[in-house]
């Protein structure tokens, strides 16, 4: 059986590696330096399958800091790096609805 790390990765455009931080579940992105950041602008953006595979492998080996690691599409425009779909936008910015209270936010 092929290990997930050996599986072929296909990407169709600029992508980042994202996950949830282990301690609190916060959405994080992998940087080129092998760190995790909550700022998508500091994420390493890859555009080839080889780059994505390498970035993902390092991230998956970092299981004491982040979990549920995967590749997510992004768009790069004049404003910088922004999520490539609604799911990722919600992960970055939070629910699209007004929360019942703003306590602790």
């Amino acid at each position: 059986m092929t290990s997930p790390l050996q599986q072929k990765i296909r990407i169709t455009g600029p992508s980042v590696v994202t996950a949830n931080r282990l301690r609190d579940g916060a959405v994080v992105y992998r940087t080129a330096a092998g760190e995790w950041t909550t700022d998508i602008g500091k994420a390493a953006v890859v555009s080839t399958a080889t780059e994505a595979t390498e970035l993902l492998a390092g991230a998956k080996n970092d299981g004491t800091r982040a979990v549920d690691v995967y590749i997510a599409p992004v768009k790069v425009d004049r404003d910088g790096v922004v999520p490539g779909n609604l799911r990722e936008l919600i992960r970055l910015r939070g629910p699209t609805i007004d929360l019942p209270v703003t306590f602790g936010v």
């Binding site: 949830n20 282990l22 609190d24 579940g25 299981g63 004491t64 629910p95």
Partner: peptide, 27 residues
């Protein structure tokens, strides 16, 4: 789990047995 003694694969079923999921933004 936080110390790394348990992997996520080992921990996941244990947290689920206590009603703990990982969702989009948080646990």
């Amino acid at each position: 789990r936080l110390s790394g003694e348990l992997t996520e694969d080992e921990f996941k079923s244990l947290r689920l047995m206590n009603g703990v999921y990982l969702q989009l933004h948080a646990y």
